[in-house]
Amino acid sequence: MPTLPELQRDFVAAVFDADSERFPGEVRDGRFGGARLFQIYRNNVFLSLTGALAAVYPVVQCLVGAGFFDYLADNFIRAHRPDSGNLHDFGGELAEFLAGFPACADHPYLPDVARLEWAYHRVFHAAAPAFDLAALGAVPPEQYGALRFGLSPGARLIVSDYPLLAIWRANQPGAGDTTVDLGAGGERLLVFRRALEVEFKLLAPGEYALLDALRDGATLEHASERALAAAADFDLAACLQQQVALGTLTNTSTLS
C-alpha cells in the first residue's frame, strides 16, 4: 500500500506517461478496469489545460486550426506543466515554445502572435495603479531628469517584424477581410487597458524607446536620450502627457 506522497507522485507521473503501468495497479477495478478509469483523469487534465490555453491564445488557435492546436497544446503541456493553482498563470511560455517547435517553423510570426495574446491576457488581469500627479507636482522641475517612472502592470510592450495588429484583427470572431500581407513590415505595440477593455496602440520609434527604457528602470533623462537616439524629432513632453493620460506609467513606487 503506497503512502499518500507516493500515491500522489505516481498519479502525476502516470498522467504524463501513458506507458506508466504502476499507478493503475492502485486503482480498484470497478465497472471498468483500473487503467481505463485512470485514463478518464488523464483525458480530463489534458482537455482542461488545452481549453485554458485556447482561452488565452484564440488567435494562435485560429491561425493553426483547432486540430493542430490540440497537438501543439499536448506537446506544450508536457514541456511546461502548470506550477500554480491559479490557472491564469498557465501558458506564459507558449511564444518561446512555438519558436522552437519544428512543426511551426514555416510560420515564424506565430511566436509574436502568442506574445501579443499573453500580453493581452496579463494586462486584462493586472492591477492598474493610477499615476500620482500630486506627487509629481511636489518634485522640483530640475530633478525631473532623475525620476524613474515604471510601466504599469496594466501595460505591456511588444515589438515584432510582422504586422501583428493586422493579424490579430483578421482573426477576431466576425472579422470581414482576413487577408494579411505578412511582408507589410513590423511594428511596435503598446498593449494597455482603458477602463475595462484591453486596447492596442501603435508606437512611433521614439515612444517605444522611451517606454522600453522606463520599463527597464532607466531615469527619465536616460530614457529620453534613448528616445532621441531612436527618433531625432521625439517630443518628450507630448509623449509623457499622452502616456500618463493613457494610464500606462506609474510613479507610485518611485515617489512615495
Binding site: 499518500l4 507522485r9 483523469y41 480530463n44 487534465v45 485554458a52 506543466r81 502548470p82 506550477d83
Partner: peptide, 14 residues
C-alpha cells in the same frame, strides 16, 4: 498538485 506540478483537476484522495 504534488511536487509543485498542478493538474487543474479535482483529483480523488484515498
Amino acid at each position: 498538485s504534488v511536487g509543485g506540478t498542478y493538474l487543474n483537476d479535482l483529483l480523488p484522495l484515498p
